[in-house]
Computed example of a mutant assay.
Amino acid sequence: MLILLPPSEGKTPAVRGAAVDWQSLGFPALNPYRAKVLEALGTVSAHEDALALLGVGASLSDDVRRNTRLHAEPAAPAHTIYSGVLYDALGYRSLTPAQRRKADESVLVISALWGALRFGDSVPAYRLSMGTALPDVGRLAPFWKPLLADALGGAVEGHLLVDCRSSTYAAAWTPPPARTVAVNVFTETGGVRKVVSHFAKHTRGELARHLLVRRGKAPASPEQLLGAAREKWDAELVAGSARKPHALNIILQD
């Protein structure tokens, strides 16, 4: 089983430590493309209109300035850099050592800057969204899509993929539909379902944690994933097709 996560919008910078060691990152075949995106990001972030070009507000000026010196910024494991609703619900720090090892082996983060990261890969905090277009790179989702298909193909072979990404990050890589289950979250009131955003992030984080801490073998099929989800939630499985992944719908009673 592999759990696919989006990065968090907010990131917690490392206070101290060495800069990123490119050769230690997972999927090293992506390094030339990571370097290209990082260089383009640094150029844009140094521009006088950097905030507008990156689509962020003035409150994120420090984050944007940090983008100009990422080669030298302290790096830390992805599970400490990424923060926010989903990552708080996953709660890596409160996992046991064995559960942390499982998380490091099982979690992949699809990133606008790095393409794909293992949970234990050390990177600096940065500010970049998958929806951004950079000079000489273009929009990042189509830039990464063929590269991730090549880099991740062998790594995901034989695994059930639990896809907790948002649509923006799902656009950057299409995993094999037959072995992929996209996680959706709804609230239900009086029989009427509504798609939720904040609670979707939180619930996906809770699901990731549940899959990491529960006893027994990890789910190896969509049906087994449904069984694991039903240990905590009202859930249903919608079968996929040759081109569309399965869907696990978690229903929260409002």
Rank of each mutant, 00 (worst) to 15 (best):
W233I: 05
G10C: 10
E188Y: 04
T68C: 11
A89E: 14
S166F: 15
G227D: 08
A235I: 06
P245V: 07
A18T: 13
M130C: 05
A76I: 00
V185D: 15
L237D: 02
E206G: 04
L2M: 11
V181M: 10
A52I: 00
P7W: 11
W114F: 12
P175C: 01
H71L: 09
K36Q: 15
G158N: 02
R243L: 14
D88M: 06
L212R: 02
A149L: 12
A50P: 07
G57M: 11
L41P: 01
L25C: 14
E157C: 04
N31G: 07
A103K: 06
L5R: 07
L60Q: 13
R66Y: 12
G26Q: 07
K244M: 12
V156P: 04
T132E: 05
R127D: 01
P32F: 02
P32D: 08
D136H: 10
G91M: 03
I250H: 06
T96F: 15
P219S: 08
A103N: 14
A171C: 02
G120M: 07
A98C: 00
P177C: 02
Y126M: 11
K102L: 12
D49E: 13
A112N: 00
E105I: 06
A172K: 07
A58I: 10
P7A: 09
E48L: 10
A50M: 04
P219C: 12
R139Y: 10
D163R: 13
R204F: 14
W22E: 02
K102V: 12
A229C: 12
L4M: 07
E73N: 07
D150G: 04
H198D: 00
A172S: 12
T68W: 02
G57Q: 15
H159P: 01
M130K: 01
Y33C: 14
A52C: 03
R139W: 13
P32K: 03
A72R: 10
S8L: 08
M1F: 04
L86C: 09
R34C: 14
V238Y: 04
L152K: 02
S94L: 01
R34S: 14
A75V: 07
E231C: 07
P77L: 04
I3E: 11
G240K: 11
E73L: 13
L54H: 06
T189N: 12
A19P: 15
A239W: 03
L212F: 07
D104I: 05
S122M: 05
W233Y: 08
P124H: 03
D150S: 06
D62C: 08
P6D: 09
L95R: 05
F199N: 03
S83L: 06
W233K: 02
A18P: 14
P222E: 03
E206M: 08
P135K: 15
L140E: 00
K36M: 15
R165E: 09
D136Y: 00
T12F: 05
F186G: 14
A18F: 13
H47I: 03
L248W: 11
G153E: 02
T180F: 09
A112I: 01
L248A: 13
R230D: 02
V162L: 03
A19Q: 04
